[in-house]
C-alpha cells in the first residue's frame, strides 16, 4: 500500500505523519525538537519505521515548518511548503466547509480564512509571541502543573481573574500578583486563557471576518481552557480536529500526495536516520554584508547551503552546492 509522509519541524515540536491514499492518518509521531531539528527528524523516522507495517511503501514526502528546507534536504522532500499553506490544506481536508482556522503553535500563531476551500486571507504574529505554546509551557512549569492538566484546571474556574495579556512578561507578573493576593489557581489559569485569546484576536484578527465553521488546531488546541475562551469571545462553536497537534504534517503529506501522483519520489528512505549529518556555518566574504551561511554536510560533501541575503548560496541541487563551497574554499575567501 502507498503511504505519504509529512514532516513538520517547528520551534517546539517535530511531527511526522503517514497518510494513506485517501488522506487518513496511518501513523503519527509527535516529539520535541529540543533545538536539534536534524536528530529530531532522524529519531522521528526511526520511531515511524517501527510503527509502520512492512507493506506500506512511502510514495511521496512533504516538509513544512520553520525547518522545512533543512528537513527537506535530509529526508529528500518532493515538496517543501510554508506552514500557512500546509495548515490550511489540512484543515480543509478534515473539514471541507471550514471558513476560519485558528492555529497556535510553539512560538507562532496564525489565522487563516478560507472560502470554498481556498485561502483568501491570513495573518501570522509578527512583533509578539505572547499566548503561544512556549509561554503556556513556561507558566505550567512555574505553577507546578503538568501542561496536559492546564486545560482542566481552566475549566474548573468559577470567577475568572482579569490578567494583563498584551505582553507575556507582564502577564506573568500579573499572575504572580494575583496568586499573592490569594485568588484560586483555577480562576487565574482561566483568566490567563482569556487574556491570551484577547491578545490573539487583537493581534491577528483585527478587521477580519471570522465566520463559522471555525477549526482550532496546533499544540495549544489541547488546552480546553483556550477552546472555551475562544468560544466565549467569538460566541461561536469551535471544532478541534482529531489530530489537531500534527495538522501541519498532515498538510505536508497531502501536498506530497498531490505533487507526486504517479511519479517517482525523492524520498531517501528510512536509512537516513543513521547518516551523520553535520551543519557548519561560516561568513561569506563575497561582499560587506558578511552573511552567515550554513552548510549541511555528509562525509565532507556539501548537500545544501543557505542564509545569505543575495541568494547565491541557495542552489537547486547538492552537486552545485558542493561546487560552490569548494570554490569558495580553494580561493580562500572563506
Amino acid at each position: 500500500m502507498r503511504g505519504f509522509l509529512g514532516v513538520d519541524v517547528g520551534s517546539v515540536s517535530t511531527n511526522l505523519v503517514v497518510i494513506d491514499e485517501y488522506g487518513s492518518v496511518i501513523s503519527l509521531i509527535y516529539r520535541r525538537t529540543q533545538g536539534q531539528p536534524i536528530s529530531a527528524v532522524q529519531q522521528g523516522l526511526k520511531e515511524l519505521q517501527k510503527d509502520l507495517t512492512p507493506d506500506i511503501k512511502i510514495a511521496g514526502v512533504g516538509t513544512t515548518g520553520s525547518a522545512r528546507y533543512l528537513s527537506g534536504v535530509i529526508v529528500g522532500a518532493d515538496i517543501v511548503k510554508n506552514e500557512i499553506t500546509a495548515h490550511a490544506i489540512a484543515a480543509s481536508h478534515v473539514a471541507p466547509q471550514v471558513r476560519t482556522v485558528l492555529e497556535i503553535g510553539g512560538q507562532d500563531s496564525k489565522i487563516i480564512l478560507l472560502r470554498d476551500g481556498i485561502v483568501v486571507d491570513f495573518a501570522m504574529n509578527t512583533v509578539c509571541a505572547a499566548g503561544t505554546g512556549s509561554f503556556l509551557d513556561h507558566q505550567a512549569a512555574r505553577l507546578g502543573i503538568p501542561i496536559e492538566e492546564f486545560g482542566s484546571y481552566a475549566l474548573n474556574a468559577t470567577v475568572p481573574c482579569q490578567i494583563a495579556g498584551r505582553c507575556s512578561v507582564f502577564a506573568e507578573s500579573d499572575m504572580i500578583h494575583k496568586q499573592q493576593m490569594g485568588y484560586r489557581m483555577e480562576d487565574i489559569i482561566y483568566g490567563l486563557c482569556q487574556a491570551l485569546v484577547r491578545n490573539y484576536l487583537n493581534n491577528l484578527a483585527k478587521g477580519k471576518d471570522l465566520s463559522s465553521p471555525i477549526v482550532f488546531q496546533g499544540g495549544v488546541a489541547a488546552n480546553a481552557g483556550m477552546k472555551r475562551a475562544f468560544e466565549e469571545a467569538l460566541q461561536m462553536e469551535i471544532v478541534i480536529p482529531e489530530h489537531y497537534h500534527v495538522m501541519g504534517a498532515i498538510g505536508a503529506a497531502l501536498l506530497a500526495k498531490g505533487t507526486v501522483r504517479n511519479g517517482e519520489t525523492r524520498f531517501k528512505g528510512f536509512s537516513v536516520s543513521s547518516i551523520d549529518y553535520r551543519t557548519r556555518s561560516f561568513h561569506c566574504k563575497g561582499c560587506e554584508n558578511n552573511c552567515e551561511i550554513v552548510k549541511i554536510q555528509v562525509d565532507g560533501k556539501t548537500l545544501a547551503c543557505w542564509g545569505g541575503r543575495c541568494g547565491k548560496w541557495e542552489v537547486q541541487n547538492p552537486e552545485e552546492a558542493d561546487l560552490l563551497v569548494q570554490a569558495s574554499t580553494t580561493s580562500s575567501v572563506m
Binding site: S66, K81, N82, E83, I84, T85, I118, V119, V120, D121, F122, M124
Partner: peptide
Amino acid sequence: ITRLEAFIDL
C-alpha cells in the same frame, strides 16, 4: 519569506 510564500500560494 514564509509569509510571501503563503501569499503567493493564496
